[in-house]
Design a protein around this nucleic acid. Structure first.
Lengths: 356, 356
DNA sequence: CGGCAGGATGAAAAGGATTTCAACAGCTTT
DNA sequence: AAAGCTGTTGAAATCCTTTTCATCCTGCCG
């Protein structure tokens, strides 16, 4: 199956650390430090943790001994005693795809600041697997659980048979008593259309994904609100629903142009669709942004930058979603629980496709 | 910053679990189970862990008591005693991007089978941050560490002041005594060119990324080997180096066509480049695959499927890289250490761009 | 000089689970 | 009936750290 590369050096060395091995057999414990410093473990603990009631001389002695031994306090023992593991579980069902990752990074960053580590659990949309993970996390006595996933309709809450704070990021829980953090899709749709209106466009189409996605409906609603406030409505009579693909974007471009000769802008439900629309428009001899302006959704740079021209788009601030989820979870762990859904605002990112 | 959605229900409920709260104050311990079953904790432990020397009657009684209390053994306490945390740290410097994710998923899958959990650490290419994480992982007494990252040249090994097994996945360590698992890029290059040769192409160009990437050099070397064996050489005299972008692919297509009128195939260093080449060729009136066949690299479906036509490409088997890394790490934890670099073979994925 | 306040230190318990070894009950064997 | 054996069970030690509370010592005041 795999082949091993020949190497001049190191091939004969069977130990994991090679010449880097240290003399020490096991990692030093607080008792080792105590023995070396000639004090009790209690004194070591207090010295190293900055408790007062320790004379500067003793403290210095202990610190030196700890240093010399390379002592690192055993977090497991600390957790056992404190009852807090300073760990949270992160369950995803997006297989850490395009949407989960930024959320996860934002969350990890916020948690790490609180000295909290993250245990990874890839649920793979398998409820059994998810149950298994929840049991594992329970056994490990995590302080909280964060559930994230692909963007879709609200999901049933995870079932715990023990009381641990849970926060849902990106994927809302159907139980309104749970805390969920999601992007404000409706607001995103509004932002996109308001930008198009502000640049003087009036005949605006909307090409988007399947209508059974809640996000699709919300973005369209936001767009239509903005239009209505301007006394307008969607070109083509309503959103054009299709798949989340460039191919659909290409087709939709043709459809829109045929239906409305005066089309001067298209707001798309994703950057992938937008890129397809851009290609479709160009193939039809229609210039972007001179004839038709284009706004995408997601700010997925792979698409926005590769598109010709680069796409103006809506950024969902996913790292912020993750960060807020982490903060909410932390607060909940500290005892200040929240419930309900928090919407994180989207942001307009302007590029050439809406140049005036 | 964020706005909170109004909800009819749940708004007033301040507790984290709302009505779902259980009566139990704290999670039950083994002593609780022992008390309920009327036996000692030793007996409970043996009963629940399938040790023998326990009568069936007692075992049943204990199991029933544990069930009734919803007892779950505290993994922290177990770890403290056993000296093994059944946890490994995963340090990445790719911010879990396109390359790390599949590797990570493969690894997580293999580790999970060994009942081992994964602690997430995003190093962000910051050595200080990385150090910090290593200290945290040490304190948590992880059984091993897995280092992964963006594909590039070998990286300096992480420095540990304690003996823990480490495995490098995707990013090779410069120390040959370390265990590293990486895709076999050279083999990938060979596979691509052999496929083109097998479909009757003879004038084959190579458009790829910057030459300071080791992967770029290896893929080119593999391609040239295959050509040499067939008595041929690269059209254009050698690899065309540029950026990892579609734009470069488009330009390179023009360059190659201008230099070689008889060009009948292009092997690209990435799917992104290949897609650009496909667009460039089409724009120049050159049909893919009828006039020129195309092979990409990465099997990044976003690119391969959206390209017209869909791209034949090389898959690096990243989940397998992760899986092998996990297996190597597990073996190392169990005492069977390995050193040196293991190459995971690539795989040809045929699509329309090389149709005959 | 005795008593006392106050600071520094250490013994011991706690946290939850596992394992060893001793004790014990019940049975068989001589 | 005594000795020996087998099969169950539990007391206690162990893993490592933190915290409480008692103890001890020093120096100060009366």
């Amino acid at each position: 199956m795999a082949r091993r590369q020949d190497r001049a050096a190191g091939g004969t060395n069977g130990t994991p650390d090679g010449g880097k091995a240290l003399k020490r057999k096991t990692t030093p414990t607080i008792s080792d430090v105590a023995a070396l410093a000639g004090v009790s473990t209690a004194t070591v603990s207090k010295s190293l943790n900055g408790r007062d009631g320790i004379s500067p001389t003793t403290r210095a002695k202990v610190v030196a001994a700890a240093e010399q031994l390379g002592f690192r306090s055993n977090a497991l023992a600390q957790s056992l005693l404190s009852g807090r593991s300073y760990t949270v579980g992160l369950i995803t069902n997006d297989s850490f795809g395009r949407f989960s990752i930024p959320v996860m990074l934002g969350a990890e960053d916020a948690l790490q600041a609180g000295q909290i580590a993250v245990l990874l659990c890839d649920g793979r949309d398998d409820p059994i697997r998810e149950r298994h993970y929840i049991r594992t996390l329970a056994a490990r006595r995590v302080d909280g659980i964060m559930v994230t996933g692909r963007r879709a309709d609200p999901r049933p809450p995870i079932t715990l048979d023990f009381p641990i704070p849970v926060v849902y990021a990106m994927c809302e829980s159907t139980d309104p008593r749970d805390a969920s953090i999601v992007p404000d899709d409706e607001h995103g749709g509004t932002l996109a259309v308001e930008h198009l209106l502000a640049t003087g466009r009036t005949s605006i189409g909307h090409v988007t994904g399947p209508s059974d996605f809640r996000a699709v409906r919300l973005r369209a609603a936001g767009a239509e609100h903005a239009l209505r406030r301007a006394g307008l409505s969607l070109a083509g009579g309503g959103p054009l629903h299709g798949s989340w693909s460039e191919e659909w974007g290409r087709q939709a471009a043709t459809i829109l142009l045929r239906a409305r000769g005066d089309l001067d802008a298209v707001f798309c439900g994703s950057d992938q669709i937008a890129r397809g629309v851009a290609d479709g428009l160009r193939a039809a001899g229609c210039a972007v942004p001179d004839d038709v302006a284009l706004v995408g959704f997601d700010n997925w740079t792979v698409m926005t930058e590769a598109s010709r021209p680069p796409l103006t788009t809506i950024d969902m601030n996913l790292p912020l979603v993750g960060r807020r989820a982490a903060e909410t979870l932390l607060a909940s762990i500290e005892g200040t629980a929240t419930s309900g859904t928090e919407l994180v605002p989207c942001q307009l990112v302007v590029r050439e496709s809406t140049r005036v």
